[in-house]
Design a binder for these strands. Structure first.
Lengths: 221, 221
DNA sequence: TCTCATAACTGAATGATTTTCAAGATAGAG
DNA sequence: CTCTATCTTGAAAATCATTCAGTTATGAGA
């Protein structure tokens, strides 16, 4: 193989296969949920043999995790594109958690993902963490939040968000609790009830439309 | 069959079977986790045929849910026994969430249960909810908390507790974060940072030892 | 006490899936 | 052009949850 930057046919095929598997995995998992998705169907849609999946992912769970992490990264990037003009870091954080809640409950493709809570919560924690934790730190420096452990606060928030989203999709709670959920999470980050409520009720810009997903960003596992 | 209060042999055997299944289910699930537990092993330990389980529980998941809900109810009762002398309802709540965190991370039998977060979080929510929500309401009336939706706050807390417990058992966080977790959950319930920290640091009585579990309290599903 | 209908129990068979692996391609270095 | 290392294939193995036809036990009525 060309030891210079040039990519051989094998490497090209591998990249194609990995991307096709992530795309197919996303489709099938979004339609049926992680548990009901079968490796056979994913393989067929990616146009590879079922055994080939295991050259790319150690198990079904790892494939699912890779898919969810990509989805999260893409949402994080869309949020970042809107919020990088906000002056108040607390507002960036509030916009982020609200957007995750609204996407998780509103986008049909997300609903199925919630049923394996620890997987989706972990993906949110890991992939949106760098942004979210930075925002919490900035907001704490600015005196808006007061939490000594932004990592812990963010981890708790991820699970709480998934829990509320799950309840909304199961119609155990109305979608209108999203407002109060944001308020409570701001309180958890150390903001006063009054400030939280004011911040949560500010007008918000809308999220830009979803770009065509780029499946090649997946990390090897 | 005796139509008076007297119980026939059939009813007696059914009660024995149900209890044996719950006990066996608890053992096996605690040792291996919900997913790795097999119906065969549970049936063997309960000394019934595998098919018999389905006379008592519609599916493996329902059996697991019944087991977890019983475990939660028993813990709730032990907490209640200690806290019913507390004067401050906020302190009752704080003691409850701390106890769940410590039990979930300290008791080896709990560690396996955390891996199906939505199941355990739901069991906590359902079975400890009556107590917890009452405490939050009392604390709000007493001016210690301020949350307009105790149900939502409790639901968020359950998922956050499971998330933190999971991270501790995976050694992603030290057990010492339990203190700060309690503080953050009190903030979420609407208490100020200062008050939360004071409340979380108060000395606590110890939980009474675990009584022999009573497997007959299970509800039919 | 005997008989019979009903309900519960049994465990082998079913069916659905993930994962493995031996055999067959394929690329690209020499 | 050849050879080897690597990837792909798809059939077979392995694992379970769940079903169900056949067996057994119970207790009401005669």
């Amino acid at each position: 193989m060309d030891s210079a930057g040039n990519e051989g046919r094998v490497a090209r095929r591998q990249r194609r296969n990995r991307e096709a598997l992530l795309k197919a995995g996303h489709e099938v998992i979004s339609e049926k949920g992680i548990d009901a998705a079968t490796m056979m169907e994913i393989a067929e849609r990616a146009d590879v043999a079922s055994g080939t999946i295991y050259n790319y992912f150690k198990s079904k769970d790892e494939l699912a995790i890779a898919v969810l992490e990509l989805v999260m990264e893409q949402l994080a990037r869309r949020i970042e594109d809107v919020t990088n003009t906000f002056a108040d870091p607390a507002q960036v954080y509030a916009f982020g958690i609200r957007t995750v809640l609204e996407t998780a409950t509103g986008d049909m493709r997300w609903r199925q993902l919630l049923h394996r809570s620890e997987v989706i919560a972990d993906a949110i924690f890991q992939r949106m963490g760098p942004f979210a934790i930075r925002d919490v730190q900035n907001a704490t420096s600015a005196g808006r939040f007061s939490t000594p452990d932004p990592d812990l606060t963010w981890r708790m928030s991820c699970f709480a968000i998934v829990g509320v989203s799950l309840a909304i999709t199961k119609d155990e709670l109305p979608a209108s609790v999203i407002d109060e959920t944001v308020v409570r999470l701001l309180c958890m980050a150390g903001m006063s009830e009054t400030d939280s409520r004011e911040l949560a009720s500010r007008p918000r810009p809308s999220l830009p439309p979803e770009a065509a997903p780029n499946w090649s960003k997946a990390k090897a596992r």
